[in-house]
Design a protein around this nucleic acid. Structure first.
Length: 760
DNA sequence: CGGGCGGCTCTTTTT
DNA sequence: GAGCCGCCCG
């Protein structure tokens, strides 16, 4: 067998075409589960093995670090040894970081320069310097809320607008102020020799715009560019790609001959709030008329009912290119719906179903629970803990956001880039050295007058009077330790440096001596950080401190998700689940206000767009499931600590009822049997609100309900016939039973009202 | 200087 | 219900 057929083995016609096309830009519209990752991997293998492409000439952009790592691992097995480390594969942010680490000195942004030992500020850190900025500008935080300003600036950066470009587009007073803040904020970042997330992209673009030599070098180098999840590209990323694809001397023309492969699915565009713009995908052919189009419509992941429901839901969107997922897995179980009285019952149902799956020898790693917002995980976690089901939670508090880890990392950052005043302020009194806010204020003042960094202002302050002898001694020994560590950082590998930090700063001793309850957990986390450092040193290509810090800054919780780990159910938001697949999926909280989220239901001019994005999100969620999907919602939910009534999601009625089963919308099924009646207007008095009023009334009067049946009882239902009780759920006032009916496939979930006991 | 307490706002999603 | 901020007291 020759290599050509080998590479194409197992690919369908369209997939093979996408692998083999070698000239001109082309767009692969790849539906969920259509094997696009395979296409990308095989294409790279084809380029290297068949076309003798230099691995260093290939640039692959993925959406997550995890996807990048997986792709690299797969490639290592398929291409010649030692060639994989010459490929550039990563997220836009990761790639831009790599680029700027070597080229940032060429960049000049309105007189501001950065050096290659820049640090990356995460959202929290950039918020804190933004607050400083507002203070300096004497702006009221009540009027200019830092969070809102932060997202405005982020939006600008994602539209390729730097402070200078934006200042030319100002139309009103608010924008004028915003522009001032933006300027000052960038100055602050510069003072720290720091970039925020969005700057990684924007600065890379500005670099190419301002330095055609540099642009030419990378244009000529990256002969083959592949971009995954193209629908979630923002303007800045798009412009950046254009920079690489076109030659500085002859603009658009030679784009047409470039090997450029964009893979995406407009129906899975779910990051518009981060500046992503799926219209860029729609416009690709308009921008570049020679762009060829390949559609991948065969789905190799899910059974038919799941695909039917997904197709049906997404067809309600107006803004899309028509396509359907075509099944290859055949028929399968219907989708089970469950209406819970509240979030506790919902969680109990999920736990019980998971137990059942486990009893049928399903591995817990095959199960995922999805939700719209992170806050929803809480109730589910509690139920799983009670039910003794192991779970892994993605999101929530990131490992690197923990206090002790941030402390140690801040030390490392200060060592790497002594201009990082955020890091300095964080560590200077941790462990306690008696250097408090008033001293820091003096340091800041000193730095201001000297025009220097906080760290060098420390040394200047020592020479002056005005500080007590105790503080002087503290600062003196602090500076001594940091200076020593800075010297060591050039000599010793990262894991050793981390150990030195723990030891020389007194951090470890202070923690060990602490009799606080949480100290033990913190120590464990610190040991885990040491493990991370060790692993980094063994596996990373670039073993420098800078690379370590960048890895930490760009790491997401998702990156640590390994299926091979211990056996556990995965809990994650729908956003985080993009690109993943699980045999069994629970999609929870299908309620108006939760999903679709209330933010998407407002009367803003964008609300139609927002609702369509919610629908795409639902489409993503549904298509994660391979074998079996569960949909749940709760009639009451604790929100901001308050109980709220909610109506079932409007999306439920967009699903063909023939593919659904279970107990859902109990009395809300319309007489026609066509699923839920239309939710016209959530504020309108409707069927739902009447039912809510009833429920409220019942609740008031109801004594705690005793279960009518127990597990194993024979029961009768007027339309389903005879069955047996498998399990029971419910709150104090409401009980539900899972019933297996004789001769029927699957089980039904019903309330006691419609059942009669036949035999105990 | 540091810890503790009370009041305030807020949650959509993440590189 | 939680995290953040500011205020007060030891």
């Amino acid at each position: 067998m020759n290599q050509q057929t080998d590479i194409l083995q197992g690919l369908n016609e369209q997939q093979a075409e996408a692998v083999l096309l070698n000239e001109g830009p082309f767009l692969v519209l790849a539906g969920a589960g259509s094997g696009k990752t395979r296409v990308l991997t095989h294409r790279i293998v084809h380029l290297i093995v068949e076309k003798q492409a230099d691995p260093a000439s290939i640039l692959g952009v993925t959406f997550t670090n995890k996807a990048a790592r997986e792709m690299k691992t797969r490639l290592e097995k398929l291409i010649p040894p030692n060639s994989s480390n010459r490929l550039w594969i990563g997220t836009f942010h990761g790639i831009c970081n790599r680029l700027l680490r070597t080229e940032i000195h060429r960049l000049n942004l309105g007189g501001l320069k950065w050096t290659k030992n820049f640090v990356i500020f995460d959202t929290t850190e950039s918020l804190s310097i933004l607050k400083e900025t507002l203070k300096v500008l004497n702006l009221d935080e009540k009027v200019y809320t830092p969070k809102a300003i932060q997202s405005k600036i982020s939006a600008l950066k994602n539209q390729a607008l730097g402070p200078i470009e934006f200042s030319k587009k100002i139309t009103d007073n608010f924008e004028l102020k915003l522009s001032e803040i933006y300027d000052k904020y960038q100055e602050k970042l510069n003072f720290n020799n720091a970039l925020d997330f969005d700057d990684l992209l924007l600065f890379s673009l500005k670099l190419f715009e301002g330095d055609s030599e540099c642009r030419k070098y990378y244009h000529e180098r990256f002969k083959h560019i592949l971009v995954d999840e193209f629908q979630d590209t923002n303007q800045t990323q798009y412009d950046l790609l254009k920079m690489l694809l076109t030659h500085p001397d002859n603009s658009v023309q030679n784009w047409q001959a470039r090997s450029f492969c964009a893979v995406g699915d407009i129906d899975q565009s779910i990051y518009s709030w981060r500046g992503a713009n799926y219209r860029l995908t729609l416009n690709l052919q308009k921008d570049f008329p020679s762009t060829q189009l390949i559609k991948l419509e065969y789905n190799y992941r899910s059974v038919d009912p799941i695909l039917e429901v997904a197709n049906s839901v997404i067809s309600n969107n107006k803004q899309r290119i028509d396509k359907k997922l075509l099944g290859t897995k055949g028929s399968g179980e219907k989708i089970t719906c469950f209406e819970a009285s509240d979030e506790v019952e919902e969680a109990n149902f999920i736990t019980a179903e998971i137990k059942r799956l486990k009893s049928k020898n399903q591995n817990l790693n095959e199960i995922a629970v999805l939700y719209r917002t992170n806050a929803q995980s809480r109730a589910i976690e509690e139920a799983l803990i009670k039910g003794q089901i192991a779970y892994k939670l993605v999101g929530g508090v990131r490992f690197y956001d923990r206090l002790e880890i941030k402390d140690i990392v801040s030390y490392l950052r200060l060592i790497f880039n002594s201009k990082d005043s955020n890091a300095l302020k964080r560590v200077i009194n941790s462990p306690r050295r008696g250097i408090g806010p008033s001293t820091i204020a003096q340091v800041e003042e000193k730095a201001e007058t000297m025009g220097s960094s906080l760290y060098s202002a420390l040394a200047d302050l020592l020479d002056e009077g005005g500080l007590g002898p105790r503080v002087i001694a503290s600062i003196h020994s602090f500076v001594e330790v940091i200076d020593y560590l800075i010297k060591q950082s050039d000599i010793v590998p990262v894991p050793d440096l981390v150990r030195l930090v723990l030891e020389k700063t007194g951090y470890l001793i202070a923690l060990q001596d602490s009799d606080k309850e949480e100290a033990e957990g913190r120590l464990e986390n610190i040991y885990e950080l040491l493990n991370v450092a060790q692993q980094f040193h063994e596996e990373s290509e670039d073993k420098t401190l800078g690379a370590f810090l960048a890895q930490i800054a760009l790491a997401s919780d998702l990156d640590n998700l390994k299926d091979s780990d211990s056996e556990a159910v995965t809990l994650l938001t729908i956003h985080s689940s993009k690109g993943l697949e699980y045999p069994f999926v629970f999609l929870t909280g299908l309620e108006e206000g939760i999903f679709p989220n209330s933010r998407a239901l407002g009367d803003s001019p964008n609300s139609t767009d927002d609702l369509e994005e919610e629908r795409r999100l639902l489409y993503v969620a549904i298509t994660r499931a391979e074998k079996k999907l569960f949909l749940t919602y709760a009639r009451n939910r604790r929100l901001w600590g308050k109980k709220e009534y909610s109506e079932p999601s409007r999306f439920l009625k967009e699903m063909p009822e023939t593919h659904l089963t279970g107990f859902w919308g109990s009395s809300v099924k319309s007489p026609s049997g066509k699923g839920l009646p239309p939710v016209k207007n959530s504020s309108e008095s409707s069927f739902y609100s009447k039912r809510e009023a009833e429920a409220k009334e019942n609740k008031k009067n109801a004594a705690p309900q005793e279960p009518k049946f127990k597990v194993g009882d024979r029961v009768q239902h007027k339309s389903f016939g005879l069955g047996r009780v498998l399990s029971l759920f419910g709150s104090k006032n409401q009980k539900f039973y899972s019933i297996e009916f004789d001769g029927a496939d699957g089980k039904k979930l019903l309330s006691g009202d419609s059942l009669h006991l036949v035999e105990s």
